[in-house]
Design a protein around this nucleic acid. Sequence first.
DNA 1: GCGTAATCAATCCG
DNA 2: CCGGATTGATTACG
Length: 639
Amino acid sequence: MASPSSSSLLSLGSIAEPLETSLLISPIPHKPNPDPDSERISLSPATDDEIFLAEYRRLARIFATGCTERFPIFIPIGSSSSTSAVAAPDAHLASLQFASCMVVKKKKKKKKQKKDRSAEMVRISSPSEQEQINFRDIIRRARTTFESLRLLIIQDEVRRESLGVLEKRSRADLKAAAFMSKRGLWLNRDKRIIGSIPGICIGDVYFFRAELCVIGLHGHLQAGIDYVSAGRSSSGEPIATSIIVSGGYEDDEDRGDVLIYTGHGGLNRNQHKMYASQKLEGGNLALERSMKYGIEIRVIRGMKINNGPNGMVYVYDGLYRAVNCWTDIGKSGFEVYKYKLLRIEGQEEMGSAMFKLAASLKLGSLSVRKSFYFCNDISMGRESFPVSLYNDLDDDKDPLQFQYSHHPIYPPAILEKVHGDGIHGCECETKCSAECYCATLNGGEFAYDASGVLLRGKPLIYECGTACRCQLNCPNRVSQKGIRRRLEVFRSNETEWGVRSWDFIQAGTFICEFSGIVLTKQQAELLSVASRSLVQPNRFPRRWVEWGDISDVFSDYMPSTYPYLPELNFSLDVSRARNVACYFSHSCSPNVFMQFVLYDHYNLSYPHLMVFALENIPPLRELSIDYGVIDEWSSKLTV
DNA sequence: GCGTAATCAATCCG
DNA sequence: CCGGATTGATTACG
């Protein structure tokens, strides 16, 4: 957020004019305002805007204060002088701080701070591009807070479990959501938004129902139909706003654009069976009313996947309208309510469809698309997963014209430095953990969780490496193992070339390394390499601060030290040797970020340039990174 | 306003 | 890897 935050904040004032929240439709008057004027199509825009923008500004303030002076503590480790190593803290310290922190806050926040959900309905008229980016940054911040909090809660419980002081794990997803709720960090609660929610794109992916609640996409932890309750809507009619389609009821028929959705009720939760007939009440009535008024309904599909924290993802598939409603005798013999929903035309391709498309790509069953694959693996087997080349626009095969190098090419002298000043590897015979020497190098906490997800971004990450005794399966060896997702370079009208994946990429996972020929500043000048062909590590904004940041919830939660990183003066020449990474597009609202890593040498001035996912990235969505500059890369500039 | 039923979860255990 | 059981939190509603 480093760079966009400043610009987005500056432009905040200007947002007031174009942003319109208008009252939905006349048959649903505005409850707290029961005067006859409420039959008007739109409320006084100023009041509406004010309330809405107040919430927006409140979040933006958190956003701004959150990213300024929070990372001042760089304790140099083994830099120039004789100060031998890291100020090795007690490895428990960080997590203990976290634990105590949680207890303290819990006690303090006895009284509930949370407000009830509003019953006032609004539509957000299409925001400008810049506003979309601002909204997306807010959504992303809530999502990373949620996910980071969840990962930390799990880490903390794993630790306490290993100490034998924890008998049962809690629901980290619910806990994370509760922490955020207490701080008033749930989004879009002051108004009930009808239709699409600013900052949320079709195809966005979530892991937990609690996450959907946090961002305001769907407000129930279990219920499939979210609606404005009858009691709070002035017309006395409930209005449905969003539904989850995940196969909970056996009578659903999901054909994508056309959806037959079953109402709720009569289902035994534990068995997968109906025990009673459904009635026209609650969400069922709400869906019927939404149909009557032609109100659009957000559809989120739950899909089973084989990676990720649980076996399920929730994909936002866009807006639908109910066109028919009837009762039917369901498979179990009980009466059920059924709703026919049609997807509204002119929206982007459904996220769930992209999952299916990507799955068939992996099976190699798409003959139409096949002819556009110029190459199945531009790395020629050098990467651990093939990188294909796709072009359905022209004949350009530029990525095949270069030497593919999956690792940066270092001058030998750099690699020789396998020991830093006072830094050496760990001696772990079995599994490295939070008590390990390498964890202390990372500021007293382990860098990754058990599945290799980065827990918190840092100036520099020390993975176990050549100087360590542990084996290659050590959980602190992640990015050094190379690509683990199926990537493709593709031709794009907007960005010349781009990179996307056939796989779903969970936020915090490693994607790939930037390779090229490592040059010092002087060497680059001497060789007069075009600046466009130079990847400059020191220009990447410090977006790693965003990943693992829970300062919104625990402002005092900090690791005891941060690894020291000197100013980086080298660059990567990608004009002769390169890999997939140099085809990433630039974005100031990116979905991947740069994280520097050391593992094979301890030359702090030449870390590896590792790319991690900043969001959950659905298959075939373009990956974008913030290069921090727009001059040389302006032609690659997307949003 | 409070208690309670309802809810297309998530996790653990056998 | 399932199915069952258990735990769980928010909301709507009486």
